[in-house]
Amino acid sequence: MADFSQLSDEELLRRTPRDAAAFDAFYVRHERLVLGYLRKRTASADVAIDLAAETFVAALASVKRYRASEGPAVAWLLGIARHKLLRSVERGRVQERARRKLGAPRLELIDERLERVDQLGNRSVDDLLAQLRPREAEAIRARVIEELTYPELAERMRCSTLVARKHVSRGLLTLRTIMEHDDV
């Protein structure tokens, strides 16, 4: 493998279409910078890592359009990172509006609930579902575990979509009560 350490960023980008190793060197040189830039501006390291990956993929895809005369390569790269960050923020706003419109819980709440499930220890899902009415247990198993849509669930249960939703809702409420009682 060639030694690219003495080459400028601009030269690495110029060579990239002919030699993928040149982009690898560019990536290694600037990965920490891009991750740091994104980490300071995002809520989590996972989001920063995802956005950094998107940034480098976009940079590689558009490397032929990069012009050194328009500015330093690192400025170009951080511009891509900024664009990816802004798009992510906008996607988050759109998802939040949709979530509120649908009345769905925030992802953080779902994560908290998943953590509580992890903390149940030896209690299996079957043990918990056994404490529910049979129709509610059936509805939760089909909706949550098998991930059926409400219309599919209603068809399976031979009831209306509204009734299927009620079975899931009541079952989840009962499970929450059971889990809260166990926490005491």
Results as ranks from 00 to 15, higher is better:
R91T: 05
R91C: 01
G92S: 15
G92L: 06
R93Q: 14
V94D: 05
V94G: 00
V94L: 07
Q95R: 15
Q95D: 14
Q95N: 13
E96T: 00
E96P: 00
R97I: 07
R97S: 08
R97K: 13
A98M: 14
R99G: 06
R99P: 08
R99A: 02
R100E: 13
R100Y: 05
K101Q: 13
L102I: 03
L102C: 10
G103W: 04
G103T: 03
G103H: 02
G103Q: 07
A104S: 01
A104P: 00
P105Y: 02
P105Q: 04
R106K: 10
R106C: 00
R106L: 08
L107P: 00
L107H: 07
L107R: 09
L107T: 09
L107V: 11
E108N: 00
E108D: 09
E108Q: 07
L109T: 04
I110H: 07
I110D: 12
D111L: 12
E112V: 04
E112G: 00
L114T: 10
E115T: 14
E115M: 12
E115L: 12
R116H: 13
V117P: 07
V117K: 07
V117G: 00
D118P: 01
D118C: 11
Q119H: 11
L120G: 06
R123E: 11
S124I: 03
S124T: 15
S124Q: 06
V125Y: 12
V125N: 10
V125G: 11
D126V: 09
D127S: 04
L128P: 05
L128S: 01
L128D: 02
L129A: 05
A130L: 09
L132M: 06
L132H: 00
R133F: 06
R133A: 13
R133S: 09
R133G: 10
P134G: 04
P134D: 13
R135D: 13
